[in-house]
Simulated scan of single mutants.
Amino acid sequence: MNKSQAIELLGSFQHFCYRKNKIDDFRRAAKTIYGQEWDVELDSGQRMQFFCTICNKIMNHVKSMCDHNRSGSHLKNICTYKPRGVARKYLNLRDMLESTNAKAIGLQMVEEFYVPGKLYYKCILCGYHEKMEAMYNHVVGTEHTDKYIKMRVDCGTHIMSLKQREDLRTFIVNEEGIRITDIRQILGEKYFPYRWMLDSSD
């Protein structure tokens, strides 16, 4: 099943959600578009529903699955998920973001400090600094995302709903792209923030 076929099939989900003979087709379609972590199960009424095996969440609609797939909590869980006990080792934050297909925004506001064997990160936008995995969680999370959205788009100061946040995130990604290559790398012992790194270990 290619992506075009998968998208077309998922578009018909509401019409066929009680057709149990199509469960394998919808399972393949969900995995093709949204990733191998998605499965399709039957609820107590024999209606198909989507299941995120990483987050242990059930979705009754394709739109809900799409929204969850882009949510900060799902992206964080993908980062820490270890299938069959095997941990993926990432080279740096760029590698982690590319490997998990995270739709992070405001990456040009992130600095990477590097000396051989050590990495440390700072988000200029939020004043946050931490090691790689924690910085990943930060840039896909709500605080950083909301702050960049409000800097980039006139959306008022109200608290955003999940849908508003994801719609605006998508708008910014479509406008700017995912600026992974704009993460600024700062090399050398002279600039490495050893004090920050020690503080973050406390």
Results as ranks from 00 to 15, higher is better:
57 K>V: 15
58 I>Q: 04
60 N>L: 13
61 H>I: 12
62 V>P: 09
63 K>C: 13
64 S>N: 13
68 H>L: 14
69 N>R: 08
69 N>Y: 05
73 S>C: 11
75 L>K: 04
78 I>E: 03
80 T>G: 05
81 Y>H: 04
82 K>S: 02
83 P>R: 02
87 A>L: 05
88 R>I: 12
89 K>G: 07
90 Y>K: 03
90 Y>H: 07
93 L>V: 14
96 M>F: 02
97 L>H: 04
97 L>G: 11
97 L>Y: 03
97 L>V: 15
100 T>Q: 04
106 G>N: 00
107 L>I: 14
107 L>F: 04
108 Q>C: 10
109 M>D: 06
109 M>T: 15
110 V>P: 01
110 V>N: 04
111 E>D: 12
112 E>S: 12
115 V>S: 01
117 G>M: 05
118 K>G: 05
121 Y>G: 08
121 Y>S: 07
122 K>L: 09
123 C>P: 06
128 Y>R: 07
129 H>I: 06
133 E>D: 06
133 E>Y: 02
133 E>T: 06
135 M>E: 01
135 M>F: 05
137 N>E: 00
137 N>V: 00
137 N>C: 09
138 H>N: 01
139 V>A: 07
142 T>C: 10
142 T>W: 04
144 H>V: 12
146 D>L: 04
146 D>W: 00
147 K>Q: 06
148 Y>Q: 06
150 K>F: 03
154 D>V: 14
155 C>M: 13
158 H>P: 02
160 M>N: 12
164 Q>C: 11
172 I>G: 05
172 I>A: 02
